[in-house]
């Protein structure tokens, strides 16, 4: 670059431009590789489970229990699927009211330190290992009443509660203050305002959050190992007894050496992924206007 360069020349003579563009291209490529690897892993898992699962799955898989001899072919995971629905259903019944209540407290009622503490420790509770949750419920419940589907529901409720509370809190926060002021100014009480104005307004987001929590609970295995225990052989629909769940059944079949049992495991994994993905997709569809975080 010379001192007398005209702008025309200066434009093109900005040195190091080539190096900068190359670096930009290289870094952009690296970033794209990161996304490609993440999506590649996703595709690999889904396609692999899909291929192994579809070669086994059939309508009778969903309506029959495993054969008495694990080495025998055929049979299905009916007991596990039914068990999962019951255990997760009860857990949802416990977690949703508690989670929504906690969120109402944090957004509409709470003040000062307690409110801050509940928000903070709710986030912390999301990160607690679920195996620890399982051990906790074992200590509180199973040592007194034995292994049961209900014990598993309690454990899953502890897993779901903070997720429900978090999303509900975020949704309530999006309810415009003017709506509350309007309601209060008309002479409505706080509880009326919350129940008739805030909750209905936030409902789509709350449902989305709830469904994502259900999806998460459907796939949980570790805490159920310590509470529900599993029951591969027959159908047990009474949650006060040892039950089977889909996730436990996949686990136990996966780690046996029997090829036929593993084959059933793949079909089970496909079923579980289908349930979870459908729940997630429907939740996202309903909540597409609201950003729901679930981490």
């Amino acid at each position: 670059m010379t001192d007398v360069a005209l702008p025309a020349a200066r434009f093109r003579q900005r040195p190091a431009l080539r190096r900068r563009r190359t670096k930009n291209a290289v870094m952009t490529a690296l970033l794209l590789v990161a996304v490609a690897l993440a999506l590649g892993a996703l595709a690999w898992v889904l396609v692999y489970v899909g291929i192994r699962g579809f070669s086994v799955i059939s309508p009778s898989f969903l309506t029959h229990n495993p054969p008495g001899n694990p080495a025998a072919p055929g049979g299905g995971f009916f007991n596990g699927i039914a068990g999962s629905l019951i255990v997760v259903g009860i857990a949802t019944g416990i977690a949703v009211p508690l989670g929504v209540g906690a969120a109402i407290y944090v957004v509409e009622y709470g003040r000062g330190r307690l409110r801050g503490a509940i928000r903070f420790f709710n986030d912390v509770l999301i990160g607690i290992p679920t195996i620890v949750t399982g051990a906790f419920v074992y200590a509180v419940w199973v040592t007194r009443f034995g292994f049961s589907g209900f014990a598993g529901s309690i454990a899953l409720a502890v897993v779901m509660l903070p997720l429900v509370a978090r999303t509900t809190e975020e949704m309530l926060r999006l309810v415009p203050t003017e709506l509350r002021e309007g309601s209060l100014a008309l002479g409505a009480t706080r509880s009326q305002t919350v129940l008739r104005i805030c909750l209905p307004t936030a409902l789509p987001g709350i449902i989305t959050g709830g469904m994502l929590a259900v999806a998460r609970a459907m796939g949980e295995t570790a805490p159920l190992l310590l509470t529900v225990l599993g029951n591969d052989l027959f159908t047990q629909l009474n949650p006060l007894h040892r039950m089977e769940t889909l996730s436990l059944q996949i686990f136990s079949n996966a780690v046996t050496g029997y090829e036929q049992a593993q084959a059933r495991g793949w079909a089970g994994a496909l079923t579980l992924i289908a349930i979870v993905l459908i729940l997630t997709a429907v939740a996202r569809f309903f909540g597409r206007r609201v950003q729901v975080e679930n981490v």
Binding site: L6, P7, A8, R10, F11, R12, R14, L17, R20, R21
Partner: peptide
């Protein structure tokens, strides 16, 4: 600018 077409296709927006 300075006789250079700022939108010239061979000109990089960064150097502009």
């Amino acid at each position: 600018f300075g006789g250079v077409d700022v939108y010239a296709p061979d000109l990089d927006a960064g150097s502009v």
